[in-house]
């Protein structure tokens, strides 16, 4: 699903965010991406979501060489990726329902279909019944779950999460991780960037560790 081949990212300032990163994630696999802040976690996710392009090497996502995805095709490419952000990136002037429905509206689903899928996604994250609320009235954990519902409503084969538990207490964090496990169980590839080592250590998943832009460790779970 995701394949990095000697991928590097150098910003125009001369800063090397990633250097010669190579790894492969199979479809349906779940993995953590970790490292101290500035190690290149966000840059790596940006390369996958085509928010940035690699300076050297190849990035292949969903059998597409990203170097060959033109600017015009980027939106269509992104529709196959559910992205979850630390700061949720919700629209506060729209209801929960409208926030979650946005990817479906963009993709051009029919009205009926949208209703069904939005309710299914909200049910999945345990927010059914809060469709008409505005995100600002929800707690941080609930907001994050709205963000997750929006990321998965489209049923993308790949989910990227950038510090999804950054602002949450351990209990809520565990709940969020459980959600990701569920998605992984039904065949979705999940890559979660986090520096929450305590959380990762409890979970039996592969961990990719970045340090100063280099992939220094790629460990499979001990079990």
């Amino acid at each position: 699903m995701i394949r990095f081949v000697n991928a590097s990212k150098r910003y125009s300032s001369g800063f090397d965010a990633l250097q010669n990163v190579s790894f492969h994630m199979a479809p349906g696999e779940m993995a953590f991406l970790t490292g101290h802040s500035g190690a290149g976690k966000s840059s790596l996710l940006k390369l996958i979501a085509l928010l940035e392009r690699s300076s050297r090497g190849q990035v292949i996502v969903n059998n597409q060489n990203l170097a060959k995805v033109s600017r015009r095709r980027i939106p269509y490419f992104r529709r196959n990726i559910g992205i979850i952000f630390q700061d949720h990136q919700l629209l506060f002037d729209r209801t929960v329902y409208d926030n979650v429905a946005l990817p479906l509206i963009i993709a051009g689903f029919s009205h009926n279909d949208i209703g069904k899928r939005v309710r299914a996604a909200l049910d999945k994250v345990g927010l059914l019944g809060k469709e008409k609320k505005y995100p600002i009235t929800l707690s941080g954990g609930e907001q994050q779950r709205v963000g997750i519902a929006r990321a998965v409503v489209n049923k993308p084969p790949l989910i990227l999460a950038d510090e999804p538990t950054g602002n949450l207490d351990p209990e809520l964090s565990a709940e969020i991780m459980n959600l990701f496990q569920d998605f992984s169980d039904v065949g979705v590839t999940v890559l979660v960037a986090t520096h929450d080592i305590a959380l990762i250590s409890q979970l039996p998943y592969r961990t990719l560790t970045l340090k100063d832009g280099k992939l220094v460790n790629d460990s499979q779970p001990a079990l």
Binding site: A49, L51, R72, P75, Y76, F77, R78, R79, I83, Q89, L90, L91, L102, P103, I106, A107, R150, N154
Partner: peptide, 16 residues
């Protein structure tokens, strides 16, 4: 601005 960023993140085309 924020709305536009979100739209771009979740695959909204320029036309949209």
């Amino acid at each position: 601005r924020k709305e536009i960023v979100v739209m771009k993140l979740i695959g909204g085309t320029d036309a949209f």
